[in-house]
Each structure stands twice: as C-alpha cells, then as structure tokens.
Computed example of a mutant assay.
Amino acid sequence: MRIALHEVTKGKKGHALPATSLEIETGHARFVLVETELRPTVLGLIATGRMRPDSGEVTIDGARNAKELRRRTALVDAPEVSDPHPGVTLAAVVGEELMFAGLPATPVHARRWLNDIGFGELAAQPIGTIKPSVRVRVMAELAVLRDDVEGFVLVSPDRHGGRPEGWWRIATEFADRGFAVLVIVGGSAAAVIERLPEALETDYPSNATVPVRPLADVTGQTALLPQADPVAEPAEDPVAEPVEAPEPDGDQDSVVERAERDETPRSEEPGEPDPAGDRVSSRSPSASSLNDPGEASDEPDPAAEPPVVDTDTGPHADTDTDPTNGAER
C-alpha cells in the first residue's frame, strides 16, 4: 500500500493546513514535521481519508478512493479527535477498541488482552498517567487489531513527553511487521529522530516529505501532477468522491473551525469544515476511573453501555466516515 498526498491544503488560504506533500508505504515508518496545536490533527485526518482537503489530492495505490483509504488506515491518538479522555482507565479504553474490532470487550477480556501484551498491571490506571511509550504501544496495538487495517497515522506522540527514541522505535517495529506508519511530530522530536543511528544508516529516507519514488500509479508509471496556482482560489473538485457523514457533534468545535479561528485575521471569515465523524465515547471518563484509579470496576458504566458511537472510525470528531467500517480511525 502506498499513500501519497500532493499539495493538500485546508482552510481559507491554507490557514488550517498549508500546502503539504508526503508519501508513506507498506513496511516503512516515516515522520513528518508539522507545527502548531491543530495542524497535526488536520493532516492526520486528511492522510487517512477522514477529511477532504480544500485543494490538492490524496491517493492510495495511485487511485483517489477516500473510502478505501479510510478502510485500510487508522488514525491513532489524534488530539481533539481520537485521543481518550485522560481520566478513563486503560482497561476501559482497551474494552472500547476491542468492541470496535469485533472482539469480546468485557472488562475481563480487556484485562486479559493487556496481560497478553505485558501491561496487565496498568489496567486500572487512568490513561492520562500512562508512560508515553506504553501509551503508544497500547494504542497502536489496538489500531491494528482490525483485519482491514494496513497502516496508521500516529499524531503528535511527543506532546505526552518522554524520549522520542522510545515511541519512534515502536513505530519502526510496526513497519517491520508489514504496516505503513506515519508519525506526525514537532520540530524537537524530528531533530532527535533524524540523528538516531538507524536513521543515519538507512538508505530509505525517514522523513515523509522526501518522496520514496516519484508519485506513481499501481502500474509503476510516473504520474505528472499539475502544480496548483498559488494565487487562484481553490476550486471544488467536480470528481471528488462524495462522502456521507453524520451531523457534527454540537458539544465540541470542529478542528478546522478552531484552526481557522486561531490562524485567520479577524477580518476574514473562517472556512467551512468538512463533515466528519468518529466515535468519541472514550473521551468521557467514567466515575470509577476518576474517583478510584487504583481499582478497576467489573461493572460497566451504564452511561457507556453500549458505548456511545457517534460514527464508525474511533473517537474522532468531525471527519468523513465509512459506515461499513466502524473500527477505523
């Protein structure tokens, strides 16, 4: 699988996301440097087919197919979209993800799954207190439980602190297992990753903004893509795949609306966000996880059973969704 983004932008005059091009493919972990609070999430949504760019294009194996892209990729731990509420216990997060992967999802099954990957003793601990590298390991393992997922985008793991080497090497392990991995990071983390021995010794560029090969379709023929006019207003693509999306959650702002509000001068009107959707139930903490972090409850929270599922792709908000794949991010 190869995913290519060519000159994608979001928001009026690219305020939510300026023109960005990158490539990722099966068997490789790559990083891309994206600064500010909200742009990493916007890029993650676009790279996984959960948000339409205002200009540019996104292809998977040389074709423009947002539905296929959503089915085969996951969006992991994106702020404001798929990151669990910090007060929810690790077992509760695991249980919800097991359910969306079509697996048994009781508290017992969640603890058993955590035991299997070596973190059973952390089941009752709020995820907001989990060591960054452990958090990345757990969230990534949950993301690839679904049979269709061939790659994932991990958003801003450096915001949790810790040493970048820890979670970056976890990303490379998943690449060695045959997944396509993109990690969106800030400048400090990117500087560390670039100086790791494995990054210096490999002939494969770890930075996703360095093309693997020229943009190509599935036959291997180079595709020449027209350059966007820098002064022209982006036009709506007449052949873009229509995406059916649910009503946005009224309780939280759109990622793009927030980016526009933060980035756009007051005299300009914010651009309209693309409709999008993802499950968000793990963003609301249960009473037991907040009041008694030392003890996990076997009784499911009445307010969370069945979990509140806004859409089909994880605790993401305001994203384009595929109603046939409720486990995607």
Rank of each mutant, 00 (worst) to 15 (best):
R283C: 09
G277I: 01
E260K: 00
S288V: 12
P275T: 14
S282W: 11
Q252K: 08
E257M: 13
R258M: 12
A240W: 12
R258I: 14
S282A: 14
R279H: 08
V280P: 06
E269Q: 09
R279W: 11
S286F: 03
S282Y: 15
R258Q: 14
A287T: 11
P238D: 00
E269L: 10
P238Q: 04
V255M: 05
P270R: 00
Q252F: 13
L290H: 01
P234V: 05
E244C: 12
G250D: 15
S288Y: 14
P248N: 09
T264V: 10
Q252Y: 08
D253T: 15
L290K: 03
P270Y: 05
E257P: 12
D237N: 01
P242W: 11
R279G: 10
A240Y: 13
V280Q: 07
P270N: 08
S267M: 14
S284M: 15
S289V: 07
A276K: 03
E269D: 09
A276P: 03
R279Q: 14
D251F: 09
V243N: 13
S284G: 15
A232P: 04
A235N: 12
V243A: 15
P248D: 12
E247I: 12
D253R: 07
R261D: 10
R258L: 11
D251C: 02
Q252T: 12
V255S: 00
G277R: 02
R258D: 11
L290N: 00
P248W: 00
Q252C: 10
D237I: 04
E260H: 01
S288Q: 15
P238K: 03
G277N: 02
S254C: 09
V256Y: 01
E233S: 04
V280E: 10
E257Q: 13
Q252S: 10
P270K: 01
R258W: 11
P275H: 12
P275V: 13
A276Y: 07
D237A: 04
P238T: 00
A287E: 15
E269C: 07
P270T: 07
E236K: 12
G271M: 02
E233I: 08
G271L: 00
E272P: 05
A245W: 01
D253K: 10
E272W: 07
P275K: 10
D249I: 09
E272F: 09
P285W: 06
T264W: 06
D237H: 02
A245T: 05
S281T: 13
E241S: 01
R261G: 06
G271R: 00
D249L: 12
S281W: 03
S284P: 08
A276S: 09
A259R: 00
P270M: 09
E241A: 01
L290Y: 09
S254P: 05
S281V: 08
P265H: 00
S284I: 15
D262E: 08
D251Q: 14
E257N: 11
E260F: 01
G277W: 00
P238F: 06
V256D: 02
S267C: 10
R258A: 07
P238G: 07
P242Q: 08
D262A: 08
D253I: 10
R266I: 14
E257F: 08
E244H: 07
